[in-house]
């Protein structure tokens, strides 16, 4: 996808980490003690990416796919081993102070705020660091705290807040200086559904109102589906897919996993029922004595479920989005890789 002008851009970016390899057992440890073995790990390879102002880009991939490394390269935390990462038209690893005032980073697993004091105290220091004037600071803290429903928690020591409240405070801190680009690395990890939804709504609203560019990494497809317009799938350090989320959703994400638990007196699954699946484009993916899991397009999901009740004595039923891993496997399998880059 070639978009100009870009607020951030990667050109043939690669990142290689060196990691020590140690043998197993006492002998392996002793060997490693005498002679270190270092193995290179390619975290990113030949990444080309351009993001326009105001876009919300979802960055997904399995563990170790290179999402966080890419975010770190783009924010200038680590240098790329090859290629060039640019943010605001400058080398990302040599950002000026003025550039840094235009960006923000939220790491879901690493608190940006100080653990032992209330969030409002950390916000006050951020206000000075980012040179936010007092009136604007007060207004933004109030507005954002109201939107995220944590107004009465601002004065509470961070360690005494729930995980969801802490993440909301992180987000308030990240948006305090009205950044042009915000990187969020798994912001909803471990949160309850309500907190996740509040954060997604907040991100969508801020993007709409201020045209803030958002780069969001997540393992949760719901984060991506409900927040992003564009999706980048990383696998083993390479871009597997970069394109419009609507198209992808139509092709892959629109699949649902339907898990059916049968009563003891229900008819069991048998091969002659295959024909019943074809009508709905469903596929049996897992079969246990009294539990069946099917995959079906979202649009056929409802009639398919109704038909399942006609076929079986259903004790329980669950419908889930297709897991991310299945999605990636499906994209691999079908060979529909790079839509655009």
């Amino acid at each position: 996808m070639s978009i100009h002008p870009s607020i951030l851009e990667c050109r043939s970016v690669g990142k290689v980490y060196s990691a020590q390899v140690r043998g197993a057992g006492t002998l392996g440890i002793l060997r490693g003690f005498v002679r270190r073995q270092v193995r290179e790990h390619v975290a990113l390879a030949n990444i080309d990416l351009a993001v326009a102002p105001g876009e919300i880009v979802g960055l997904i991939g399995a563990n170790g796919a290179g999402k966080t490394t890419l975010v770190k390269c783009l924010t200038g935390i680590i240098p790329a081993s090859s290629g060039r990462c640019e943010l605001f038209g400058h080398d990302a690893f040599a950002l000026t102070r003025a550039d840094k005032r235009r960006l923000s980073l939220v790491m879901g697993q690493r608190s940006q705020l100080w653990w032992d004091i209330p969030a409002i105290d950390s916000f006050r220091l951020l206000r000075e660091i980012y040179q936010v004037d007092a009136a604007r600071f007060e207004r933004r803290v109030r507005e954002q705290a109201e939107r995220l429903d944590v107004t009465d928690r601002l004065q509470v020591q961070l360690r005494q807040l729930s995980l969801g409240e802490r993440m909301k405070m992180e987000i308030i801190g990240a948006f305090l200086h009205d950044p042009e680009v915000v990187f969020l690395d798994e912001p909803t990890i471990g949160l309850d559904l309500l907190s996740q939804e509040t954060i997604r709504t907040f991100l969508r609203e801020v993007n709409r109102e201020r045209r803030t560019t958002v780069i969001l990494t997540s393992h949760d497809m719901a984060d991506i589906e409900e927040t992003c317009d564009r999706l980048v799938i990383l696998e083993a350090g390479r871009i597997l897919f970069d394109g419009d989320l609507v198209g992808l959703r139509r092709r892959f994400v629109g699949r649902r996993a339907v898990e059916v638990h049968l009563e003891a007196n229900s008819r069991p699954w048998s091969a002659e029922l295959d024909g019943e699946l074809e009508r709905f484009g469903a596929v049996l993916v897992r079969e246990a004595p009294r539990a069946l899991t099917f995959e079906v397009d979202a649009e056929h999901c409802q009639p398919f479920i109704q038909h399942l009740f006609d076929l079986f004595q259903v004790r329980d039923l669950a419908v889930e989005r297709q897991p991310l891993e299945n999605l990636i496997r499906e994209i691999f399998r079908t060979g529909e890789l790079v839509e655009a880059s």
Partner: peptide, 13 residues
């Protein structure tokens, strides 16, 4: 060690 120093690296300070 814990990666918390990351937060300071993106700040204009």
């Amino acid at each position: 060690f814990d990666g918390y120093v990351t937060k300071y690296l993106v700040m204009p300070v």
